Amino acid sequence: MLAALDKRHEELIKRGQKSTCNSQTVAIRKEYGNLSPQEKTDYINAVLCLQGKAALTPTSLVPGARTRYDDFVATHINQTLTIHYTGNFLSWHRYYVWVYEQTLRNECGYTGYQPYWEWSKYVNAPQNSPLFDGSATSLSGNGAYIPGRNDTVLTAVTASGPVAPLYLTPGLGGGCISTGPFANLTVNLGPRGNPNAAPGPDGGLGYNPRCLKRDINPTTAQRFNNLTDILSLLTQNNDIYDFQMELQGIPGIGIGAHGGGHYTIGGDASDLFASPADPAFFVHHGQVDRMWTIWQNLDPEDRTYALAQTRTYLDLPPSANTTLDDPVELGYAGGEQKIIRELMSVVQGDFCYIYV
Rank of each mutant, 00 (worst) to 15 (best):
V157W: 09
Y167P: 03
T169V: 14
G174A: 06
T169M: 12
T158A: 11
L168S: 09
T186C: 05
P181G: 00
A164I: 13
P181Y: 04
Y167F: 14
T186G: 06
L166D: 09
N184R: 10
V163N: 06
S178M: 05
G180R: 00
A156V: 06
T155L: 10
G180P: 01
T186P: 01
F182A: 01
A164H: 13
L168D: 05
P165A: 12
V157C: 10
A164D: 15
F182L: 04
P162A: 14
I177K: 00
G180W: 01
V157D: 12
P170Y: 08
G175T: 08
G171D: 01
V163I: 07
S178P: 03
V157R: 14
G180A: 01
S160Q: 14
P165K: 14
L166S: 04
A156F: 13
N184H: 07
V163K: 04
L172A: 03
P165D: 10
T155D: 10
T155Q: 14
Y167W: 10
L185C: 06
P165S: 08
V157A: 12
V163H: 06
I177D: 00
L185P: 04
P170N: 08
L166V: 07
P162Q: 13
A164E: 15
G161W: 09
P162K: 13
A156Q: 12
V157E: 15
A159V: 15
G173H: 04
T155Y: 10
C176S: 12
G174F: 03
L166M: 10
T169R: 14
I177E: 02
L185W: 01
N184D: 13
A164P: 10
F182I: 01
T186E: 02
T169F: 07
P181M: 04
P165H: 11
A159D: 14
C176T: 08
T186S: 08
S160F: 08
V157N: 15
G161A: 11
F182N: 02
S160M: 13
L172Q: 05
G175D: 11
A156D: 13
A183I: 02
Y167M: 04
A183L: 02
G161I: 06
S178L: 06
C176Q: 12
C176K: 13
T179H: 02
P170M: 07
T179A: 07
V163Y: 08
A159Q: 13
P165Y: 07
P162V: 12
V157M: 13
A156E: 12
L168I: 10
C176D: 13
N184L: 03
G180S: 05
G180D: 04
